[in-house]
Design a protein around this nucleic acid. Structure first.
Lengths: 224, 224
DNA sequence: GCATTATTTAATGTATACGCAATGTAATGC
DNA sequence: GCATTACATTGCGTATACATTAAATAATGC
């Protein structure tokens, strides 16, 4: 954790608080909440809550519906598919850029570590640890890509699918083959083979997308 | 134009007003403006202006800098390059999806018309008309792609580069070859050839990107 | 004179007040 | 009973008041 601001503004507090409430499921997808209720809950006046909800609406986490309250957004299968398609493209773009950037072995150590962590986690079937390492890998990959717009868009959509991912973590098959892909991507980047990095990662992500969508359909999860 | 809201909220008025002021250059890139000043200018209190600036900050049009005022963002060459790279990828994705969607000739008429309009405009060297038709083509292409996330992201970044595009409209060479690409993309989509639609459009966009970046550098436009 | 501290200023962040419009409820006419 | 209209409620949009604090300025000691 980075050093906290001397005094965090109420609006920031509200943003973080709401995010946390949403991610944790305390404000479930589809639920409605009046500004006054949220303000009370967060211990502040309506003003900063209002500003926070407007910003989070811009980030696709909720919807402000006058007189109906703030609605926490749920994602349909189509939404998930759209987002995964987008993430596939953007992460693959990042992989290509990362390969072209000529990163040193040292630069790539976070990726390598994440892969190791996933391996360890897989061996002990520790899905939570695996998920953390997986997210670390993908986040770092995008960071290495270096396109700041891509970085923030990907981060944003990862937030949007966070709940869904957590929800499916225990019902999906252990990603045995996944790490082969990760290693292949890492190697392509280390070798500076941009086309390969792109295509391998694209394939990897496409597969994950298909798997997830099938899973959602199979379990009748129309909204997550 | 769609029927106006009975009563447009002040916040919406502020958003539209600020956008217009930014796009028109009345609030030049890099300039700073206090909330009070903007409120007076827009004829309303600080509250809706504040909400508007926060939302526009989320859209990358300006930056809220406490005590320094709202700064209208300018884009560096690197920024432009990042954005064009992103647009290249997302529009190409849209082209692929459009090709896979099995659109009828009728569905593709807007694209076809836009191409014709560009041709006409080119013949009379009417750059403004050409730019409008070109934007129409690209917007429609993305719309046909049908991924709503992609649609809104592309729209957003088009807003961000709007000024820069206007600025370079008269100093860049007439895009003689450009329409060949557009036609090729249209044909690939009509034929349902997704891979071709993707690659042709990707190439088209990459070229435009290179051209623009060269142009900015050549003219010493470090910030637009 | 220069650096440091105290003071003032001003712009923001936040709370609050208030009117309006949308929603629900009761009353009325048929 | 049912539809329609009047009424009450309430949640939001906006203005405004106030507190806070960063920045600018003045004052002080050396």
């Amino acid at each position: 954790m980075s050093q906290e601001q001397r005094t965090k503004s109420q609006t920031k507090t509200a943003i973080d608080g709401l995010k946390e409430l949403i991610f944790s499921g305390e404000l479930p997808a589809g639920s409605d909440h009046l500004e006054t209720e949220l303000a009370q809950r967060l211990g502040m006046s309506r003003t900063p809550v209002r500003e926070a909800t407007l910003m989070l609406e811009g980030q696709g986490l909720l919807e402000v519906r006058p007189r109906k309250g703030v609605r926490i957004l749920s994602l349909s299968v189509v939404d998930m598919d759209e987002i995964y398609e987008l993430l596939t493209e953007l992460e693959s773009l990042a992989a290509r850029r990362a390969a072209n950037a000529g990163h040193s072995k040292d630069d790539l150590s976070v990726l390598a570590n994440a892969i190791d962590e996933m391996e360890t986690a897989l061996a002990s079937e520790d899905r939570e640890s695996w998920a953390r390492a997986d997210e670390k890998f993908h986040t770092e990959l995008v960071r290495l890509g270096g396109n700041s717009r891509v970085i923030s868009i990907v981060a944003n959509f990862n937030n949007q699918v966070r709940r869904a991912r957590a929800m499916t973590l225990y019902i999906r098959p252990l990603p045995e083959k996944s790490n082969e892909d990760h290693r292949a991507v890492l190697e392509a980047i280390a070798a500076g083979d941009a086309a390969l990095a792109f295509s391998v990662h694209h394939e990897h992500r496409s597969n994950a997308r298909k798997m997830l969508i099938e899973l959602l359909k199979k379990h009748g999860l129309k909204h997550v």
